[in-house]
Design a binder for these strands. Structure first.
Lengths: 206, 206
DNA sequence: CCTACCGATCGGTAGG
DNA sequence: CCTACCGATCGGTAGG
């Protein structure tokens, strides 16, 4: 129906605006005027600013999954998928999928000092993402592609830190070497724990 | 004089408030009511919200230098000072020197998608900090404490990413292992490029 | 989805 | 440093 389509148009714009102005800086008045709607007409779709924020977080997560996670899932599980996930994250920031930089990095640092259900929703999205990253690492380990002593949560922490670092260097510092640096850091870390094909076969005893 | 003292009290509070609510979320009205001053009396110290934001950034930088940079400078240049800098950064977040988490990490992600002089001031503070980190690395290299092939800017990028990662895990995720993870990541990276005392003497030909 | 409105708060000013 | 304001905008409501 039409109401649902309008809602999607609103949310798409809300997500872009929030990535620049923050989830608190996102205002119903500005959103309405940019979309040439009345404030109350737009407001009626959500019922409160908090609901709008929660809906924006959900919409941003769909976009993130679409652009970062899904393409990587086409790669075979193990080392190739893990590398694909890292590459598509860096691409996602490089192509400014959200105009103000990574929506979730911004939201994480905006809400990390405040309580509330918006913060909880941001934290949930981030731990879902860290969980996905961890699973990709665990699979690579179970496939015998990386050192079995690797702790998935530790490596996920480090990779995510490099992603945040790339987002920071690129968007705040406008450093052209941001992605080169992040790639170098990630590659060194992953190559350091990689097990060669020959070694993988040997370990499997095949 | 008394005006200057009042100004410091205001800025001290402004910095704390901004670390939680963001530099845009910092409002003159709330600041005034928490300090039991009139809005206009407080306002007169700065002349505009933008000037208040710039003054808060400067005050935050003094606090940061005091707590993170100065103590590390007491250590001998080279590897010990580099390690001290990393440790005091993690301590700084662990002890919540700013109640809402690292002021500069928050400000970086808040302003990374917007133009203006506040953004420029945040970017300047961050590149000053990255510069200090780079210098500490370069000294360690020049002292023969770490592999001469290390690129200071690359390593500074990586260490800073781990700091942001620790801030994220600790403040948003309330992960008790945040600092353990960051320490492990930093230690592995630094130990990997470290040159032993014996080796340092040999390379110097002494 | 709209117009018309509400009280509260925003940054900022006048005048002292 | 204050009181007393200003226009603009905030989130939200009434009624259609």
């Amino acid at each position: 129906m039409k109401g649902e389509r309008t809602r999607q148009v609103i949310l798409d714009h809300a997500v872009n605006l929030a990535s620049v102005e923050g989830l608190e800086g996102l205002t119903i008045g500005r959103l309405a005027s940019e979309l040439k709607m009345s404030k109350s007409g737009l407001f009626a779709h959500f019922g409160s600013k908090e609901e709008l924020q929660l809906a924006a977080i959900e919409a941003a997560s769909f976009r993130f999954i679409d652009v970062v996670v899904m393409p990587a899932l086409k790669k075979p599980r193990g080392y190739p998928r893990l590398v694909a996930l890292c590459k598509s994250w860096l691409n996602y920031v490089q192509h400014s999928v959200f105009p103000g930089g990574c929506f979730f990095a911004a939201a994480s640092f905006e809400f990390d000092g405040r309580p509330g259900i918006v913060r909880d929703a941001v934290a949930k999205q981030m731990s879902d993402w860290m969980g996905a990253l961890e699973r990709a690492i665990r699979m690579a380990r179970d496939e015998g592609h990386i050192d079995p002593k690797v702790e998935p949560a530790q490596l996920a922490f480090e990779l995510n830190a490099f992603f945040f670092g790339a987002n920071f260097s690129f968007n705040l510092q406008h450093d052209k070497k941001a992605f080169e640096r992040a790639k170098k850091a990630i590659t060194r870390r992953l190559e350091g724990i990689r097990i060669s094909h020959a070694e993988t076969r040997k370990r499997r005893g095949s």
